[in-house]
Simulated scan of single mutants.
Amino acid sequence: MITKEDIIAHLCLEPHPEGGYFYQSYVSEAVVNDKQLFTSIYFLIESGNISHFHRISSDELWYYHAGNAITIHLIHSDGHYEQVKLGMNLAEGEVPQFLVPAQTIFASTVEDDSSWSFVGCMVAPGFTFEDFELFKAADLLPLYPEHESVINKYAL
């Protein structure tokens, strides 16, 4: 059985600034408006190593690959909070892929102790760190005080 250590080693995953581990697996050669058409990464997250609240300027499509379900926490531009489970337990409402819309503030976690999740993420137009915003709780609390408990849990 494959372990998270196997995935990290074999796919050359490195720590991501938002949390978890990643490897950029593809960058499109096609360019639109001075950006790659799309980019794709492998992403592994484990319990206790969350992906903190952040935002990018493009759509991000997530694909479940292995491990436990991953929870994506979203604060939409209208202030609505949503939680989505990415995984294969369809009878329990998990989904195998999910789109995080551009400009949505989001974080991701693995809720079960001692567990991990391995996913893929495709960003279109392509991801650049110039379009990446990582949030501290102090940044988000004045904007979304109704989500204080979630913000304190998943923001830096």
Rank of each mutant, 00 (worst) to 15 (best):
H52D: 11
H65Y: 15
S58M: 06
F53V: 06
K85I: 11
D59F: 02
V110S: 00
E130V: 13
V95C: 04
D59W: 00
I2G: 03
V100A: 14
G48M: 10
Q103Y: 10
S115M: 05
W116S: 10
G93P: 00
V31A: 00
A91V: 10
W62H: 12
D112L: 11
A138Q: 11
G126F: 09
P145L: 12
P125M: 13
D59M: 06
S115Y: 02
H76S: 00
D131R: 02
H80L: 15
S58E: 13
V95T: 12
E18C: 05
F22K: 01
W116G: 07
W116A: 06
F43A: 06
N152I: 11
Q97K: 02
I2W: 10
P15K: 12
N68Q: 04
V110I: 12
H65A: 12
C12F: 13
S77K: 03
F22N: 08
A30M: 09
V110Y: 00
H54A: 15
E94P: 00
S108T: 13
M1G: 03
L90N: 05
D112E: 14
R55S: 12
N152H: 11
F43T: 06
E133I: 13
G67L: 10
L99Q: 06
F38G: 01
S28P: 02
I45K: 04
A155E: 01
E60T: 10
I56P: 01
G19T: 12
K136Y: 09
V31L: 00
E18Q: 08
L99H: 01
E92F: 06
H147N: 12
I50W: 05
E14P: 01
D112W: 04
E29H: 06
L134D: 00
L74T: 09
H65E: 14
E82F: 07
E94H: 01
G67T: 04
M122I: 14
N68P: 01
D131F: 03
F127Y: 15
V119W: 00
E146N: 11
Q83L: 03
F98R: 01
S25G: 07
L140S: 03
S51A: 09
A69I: 03
R55V: 12
S47H: 15
Y81M: 14
S149F: 09
S40C: 10
M88C: 08
V100G: 14
L13D: 13
Q36G: 07
S117D: 11
C121G: 08
F38E: 02
L140E: 06
L11W: 14
E130F: 13
I50S: 09
H10D: 15
V123S: 04
W62F: 12
M88G: 05
P17H: 09
E5K: 07
I72H: 07
V100I: 15
G126H: 09
L44F: 06
G87C: 05
M1W: 07
I2M: 13
F135P: 00
F106D: 08
S25P: 01
I8V: 13
Q83I: 02
T3R: 04
F98C: 11
I75Y: 06
H73G: 05
H16K: 02
M122N: 11
G79C: 03
